Computed example of a mutant assay.
Amino acid sequence: MNLKRAILFLLLVVPGSAAVIASTWWGINDFSALEKANRNFDKLVSEGADQKELFIASHKENTHRINVGFDGTWVALGGILISMGILGIAQTQNK
């Protein structure tokens, strides 16, 4: 492996893979928390909770919803880094 390929691998493929793995892991955790918050909100609605309790539960649910969305964004950005690195490695010719 020549120097250009090693640099592309170390600066794009490795960090991109780390971003995809970490963001996927956090996305799964955040999605579980989102489902739990959603069930809690539904339970409060069915119990006839007051406006303040519903507002707090809704805020918690929306916080998890935003986190899941951004975790997905980081998965996509990590995938772009991986793709750029692999494409650069494939296009680099051995001399």
Score class of each variant (00 low, 15 high):
A18Q: 08
A19R: 14
A19V: 12
D42F: 02
A49Q: 10
I21W: 09
E47N: 09
S32F: 05
L44Q: 10
G48M: 03
V20F: 02
T24V: 07
A22G: 04
E35N: 12
L54F: 09
A57H: 08
L34N: 06
A18F: 10
N29R: 13
V45E: 14
D42E: 14
E47V: 01
A49P: 15
A22V: 09
K43E: 09
G48Y: 05
N38M: 05
L44I: 01
S46H: 02
F55H: 11
A18I: 13
S46K: 09
A33Q: 12
G27K: 03
N38A: 03
A18L: 14
K43S: 11
N40A: 14
G48C: 04
S17P: 04
E53P: 13
K52D: 15
W25S: 08
I56M: 06
V20D: 00
F31V: 01
A49L: 11
E35D: 13
G16V: 05
A33L: 12
A37H: 08
D50N: 15
A37W: 05
K36G: 01
E47W: 06
H59C: 00
V45R: 04
I28H: 03
W25R: 04
D30K: 05
Q51R: 11
W25H: 12
A57G: 08
D30L: 00
L54P: 15
I28Y: 05
F55C: 00
N40M: 09
R39T: 05
S58G: 14
A18W: 09
A18H: 10
G27H: 01
V45G: 06
G27C: 06
A37E: 07
A49F: 09
A22T: 09
F41Q: 07
L54I: 07
D42K: 03
S32R: 11
V20K: 02
L54R: 04
W25V: 13
S17K: 07
G48N: 08
T24M: 05
A57I: 03
H59P: 00
A22E: 04
I21D: 01
E47C: 00
K52L: 15
D50G: 15
V20Y: 01
S46D: 12
I21Q: 01
T24R: 05
L54H: 12
A22P: 11
S58W: 01
D50Q: 08
W25D: 00
E47S: 07
V45A: 07
A22Y: 12
G48E: 10
